[in-house]
């Protein structure tokens, strides 16, 4: 008998006959979907999570973003080759630079330049202030993973009310990676003092479009 069989023998003995497992999710518990404007709620929760939300007229948002990136010392804008929305925003930011554009592998190798990573979000969650990114369809997660600043491009129509809605698409066959990103990388491991940029981005920016 191998270890696994032996484990299941122990578990079955311990569980005994306890009737069938509950087949449907138990009712109750989930907060009712928030009333009103999901985008407005997202703006509130994302900000509470330490993120910065930019919305409104594109020109204004771009110039604000450019200034924000410069003040963070960003010199390189990194976007995935196949992410049209990210490319569009990154390219539009060049005049606010000086910024170099890159889709490149050098970022992965640990670029010395301060980098902003751009990526289109798959969804956003109003309840928690969360950007949803997944590896579905061969998409990369690097912009929000290794860059110093993460810029998410969020279509307003992609904002869902609660986590339930965001996960509904993945109950059958999820991609390798589903990531909920809520604000910058944080730590309070030293004297419980909240500090950003432990491993991931020091700044998380969401640019609301559409």
């Amino acid at each position: 008998m191998n270890e696994r069989e032996s484990l299941f023998r122990r578990l079955s003995a311990a569980c005994g006959e306890r009737g069938a497992a509950v087949e449907e999710p138990l009712p109750g518990g989930a907060p009712t979907a928030p009333e009103g404007d999901r985008v407005a709620l997202f703006a509130k929760t994302f900000t509470a999570a330490g993120g910065v939300l930019l919305r409104g007229p594109v020109e204004k948002a771009l110039s604000d973003l450019g200034e924000m990136l410069r003040s963070e010392g960003v010199t390189a804008l990194f976007f995935p080759e196949d992410d049209a929305a990210a490319r569009e925003i990154a390219e539009a930011l060049v005049p606010f630079g000086p910024f170099n554009l890159t889709t490149g592998a050098e970022v992965r190798g640990g670029s010395a330049a301060v980098t902003a990573g751009f990526r289109a979000a798959e969804a956003a969650i109003a309840e928690t202030g969360t950007i949803v990114e997944t590896s579905a369809g061969g998409k990369t997660l690097l912009p929000g993973l290794i860059a110093d600043v993460h810029v998410s491009i969020v279509p307003a129509a992609s904002v869902v009310a609660r986590m339930e809605e965001a996960l509904a698409a993945f109950t059958e066959d999820p991609p390798r990676n589903i990531s909920f990103l809520s604000g910058p990388s944080k730590t309070a491991d030293i004297e419980q003092t909240l500090t950003v940029g432990a491993h991931g981005p020091k700044k998380a920016i969401a640019l609301m479009v559409g």
Partner: peptide
């Protein structure tokens, strides 16, 4: 309200 990162990982990297 939520931690900065929730990763739901399933299996190995897929083709592509």
């Amino acid at each position: 309200v939520i931690s900065s990162y929730v990763s739901i990982v399933t299996g190995t990297r897929r083709a592509g």
